[in-house]
């Protein structure tokens, strides 16, 4: 792998992360925000794997395993929360949930 490829991959992973971040802030529906969070996790995963390939180390893949565990936990809790909110008060707009303010 050439250094230029590595830099381009890092830039792309940063782009995917930034896209997810943008979605998280711009969208108001909870499901879209969860999808954006997935993108935010996918970006660093690419960066880790690119780094692992660049340094010839398996630690990149090991970190990827952790990221996928984190994503699984996040999705399980996020979707459960979404369903609970839908069932309780029929909320799907995250801006209307401000009860934890104080």
């Amino acid at each position: 792998m050439s250094g230029a490829t590595f830099l381009i991959l890092l830039a792309l992973s940063g782009g995917i992360f930034a896209t997810g971040f943008f979605g998280l802030m711009a969208r108001r529906a909870i499901l879209f925000q969860l999808i954006s969070l997935e993108m935010m996790l996918a970006g660093p995963a690419l960066a880790f794997l690119a780094g692992g390939a660049w340094h010839g180390s398996q630690q990149g893949q090991a970190m990827f395993v952790f990221i996928i565990i984190l994503a699984a936990a996040e999705v399980a809790l996020g979707l459960a929360l979404y369903l609970a909110l839908r069932r309780g008060a029929d909320v799907e707009d995250s801006d209307t949930i401000t009860g934890l303010k104080h």
Binding site: I8, L9, L12, I16, T19, G20, G23, I35, S36, M39
Partner: peptide, 19 residues
């Protein structure tokens, strides 16, 4: 290398569309 860059670029485009 080219394949990796190409796939990652596609991923970025898809991510933009997804959000």
């Amino acid at each position: 290398d080219l394949a990796a860059i190409w796939c990652a670029s596609v991923a970025l485009a898809c991510a933009i569309l997804a959000v």
